[in-house]
Amino acid sequence: MQKQVSYESIILRVVARLMLPILLLLSVFMLLRGHNMPGGGFIGGLVAASAIILQMIAFGPQEARGIIKINYLILAGVGILVAAMFGLPALVADLPYMTAFWIPEPIPGIGKIGTPVIFDLGVFLTVIAVTTKIALLLAEEPELFPLAMADDQEGGAPQV
């Protein structure tokens, strides 16, 4: 009953390989421009996650794991930690938790830097980690989710 999952579409593989760096760059771009233009940590995270998931569909979960060799569960936790840390400096200054601080002048090429950017980074990391990990979890259960759509004739569904 064990189905062999095949990840063998040449077109998809070529496109996926080309797209990976572009999408990952795009995701960082989205993260950084988020404060003034459409984008942000959430969108950036989703872009990065879809880049990795695209690899997973084209090459299989093994290959996809190799792109970022990291434990996604830990990454998600780190993301939340980073996001939570951003509120702490305010406490030192005796202001309410999560009060934002900004460097007065924008840094050329990067833009304005302040604590909300760190928060966005935390969101970014968490979204990447959670989305990718869920996809990997599903893909690594070929018995449960045999990815390739079973054909009607050989699907083995009982006739009721």
């Binding site: 988020g34 404060h35 003034n36 233009m37 942000g40 996001a83 909300p116």
Partner: peptide
Amino acid sequence: KGANVVNVILVDFRGLDTM
């Protein structure tokens, strides 16, 4: 300090919600 209102809401005004 952001022109993108949606994002400012997410990371600043409603930061705790996003958290």
